[in-house]
């Protein structure tokens, strides 16, 4: 099984985690044009290869974090806490 390095708990089995969509999507302003909202809500880069994704350690610390992963080989490159989250001691 895939091991995912939780930034808070260390490497844990994949089944403890759930995928939560692509990382780095900027939420448009509330009054942004409809096209911006369509792009944000529906369109995806859907990369083949290196990807940056949001994951959640639901069966562990319940924290969201960013996972760098390859969508073809499933190799995990790195994980990062979300910007603003404090790094565990």
């Amino acid at each position: 099984m895939m091991l995912i390095p939780c930034p808070w708990c260390g490497p844990r089995p994949r089944v403890e985690f759930s995928y939560g969509g692509p990382a780095d999507r900027a939420r448009p302003a509330d009054d942004a044009p409809l096209e911006d909202w369509t792009r944000y809500v529906y369109e995806r880069d859907n990369p083949k290869g290196a990807a940056r994704e949001l994951w959640r350690h639901g069966a562990g610390c319940r924290q969201w974090f960013v996972l760098e992963r390859d969508t073809v080989t499933h190799a995990v490159a790195a994980s990062h806490p979300l910007p603003g989250a404090e790094v565990a001691p």
Binding site: M1, M2, P13, R14, V15, S18, Y19, N46, K48, A51, E53, W55, T71, V72, T73, H74
Partner: peptide, 13 residues
């Protein structure tokens, strides 16, 4: 399997 993939195989779980 629950997360984006282009591998034509999946996980044992």
């Amino acid at each position: 399997d629950g997360y984006p993939s282009y591998a034509q195989r999946g996980e044992t779980a």
